[in-house]
């Protein structure tokens, strides 16, 4: 219990620094003594405190809730989006996952659709635009029917929830060898395809969202399933199959 808290990890960090979209960027090397009970971002906080102490600007990185749900944090750590632990966001990754003497490479999520704004911060607005293209049910606030008017099989509700757990962090894009946004898009298509509320707009939704995904400049799916391995919420690639099915069906049926 906290027994290893006085242990110290001497680490070498290679951190991507880039002052803006026009700067080519490069790695900057830092050394740090970290405690195993620090979170990865707390370790970066300490790096930043040290940098500022030396009169150098802090490394910019996205973060917010620091409890694994807002989807703001990112980073590719030693070649893996969100680092080495499965189903763990960067903010929930702790330094006990590393060993004394480790060299750690820290890079931004890389994709043409996610341009770097500064250092490790990227622009993920394409994901919002994919949702705008159909990731909703078109009902206005008002007086819909009673919530229990349509029973939904628990199994479907659970599957919809599995898909809806997506935090929109973009790790699937970062992990995909093709920088595809299939898992992100499929998660929302799936959630609504599994629920009766999604039925009326079924065809238009999947076509709209898939087309927007293309417009944003993401790659294509080669069914490697690396997105699923990187997903901090464990979203299944079964959702991609479901989206493919929906898309095929919609392409045949839509007028």
């Amino acid at each position: 219990m906290g027994g290893h808290s006085d242990e110290i990890l001497h680490l070498t960090l290679n951190i991507w620094r880039q002052s803006g979209a026009d700067d080519p960027g490069e790695f900057e090397t830092h050394t740090i003594d970290a405690s195993p009970s620090m979170s990865f971002l707390e370790m970066l906080d300490v790096v930043n405190e040290n940098l500022q102490e030396d009169g150098r600007e802090a490394v910019a990185f996205d973060h917010d809730c620091r409890e694994g749900i807002c989807g703001m944090c990112s980073l590719v750590i030693n070649g893996k989006p969100h680092g080495p632990e499965s189903e763990t966001t960067t903010c929930q990754l702790h330094m006990r996952s590393f060993s004394d003497g480790d060299v750690i490479w820290i890079e931004p999520f890389r994709a043409k659709a996610f341009p770097v704004l500064r250092d490790l911060i990227i622009d993920r607005s394409p994901l919002d635009r994919i949702i705008q293209a159909g990731g909703f049910v078109s009902i206005n606030t008002g007086a819909p029917q009673d919530a229990n008017a349509i029973p939904i099989a628990k199994e479907n509700a659970d599957l919809a929830m599995d898909a809806a757990a997506c935090i929109g962090c973009g790790a699937c894009v970062a992990a995909c060898p093709n920088a595809a946004a299939m898992l992100f898009t499929a998660a929302k298509v799936s959630q609504l395809a599994l629920l009766p509320q999604g039925e009326p707009e079924r065809e238009g939704r999947v076509i709209g969202m898939v087309e927007q995904m293309e417009t944003e400049g993401f790659g294509h799916c080669t069914n490697h399933y690396d997105c699923m391995a990187a997903c901090p919420k464990g979203i299944s690639t079964d959702n991609i199959a479901r989206m493919n099915r929906e898309y095929l069906r919609a392409s045949v049926l839509s007028r």
């Binding site: 590719v76 030693n78 070649g79 890389r110 043409k112 093709n178 993401f218």
Partner: peptide, 9 residues
């Protein structure tokens, strides 16, 4: 084209 700049690692 979707990933013009690759990962170092």
């Amino acid at each position: 084209e979707a990933r013009p700049e690759g990962y170092r690692l």
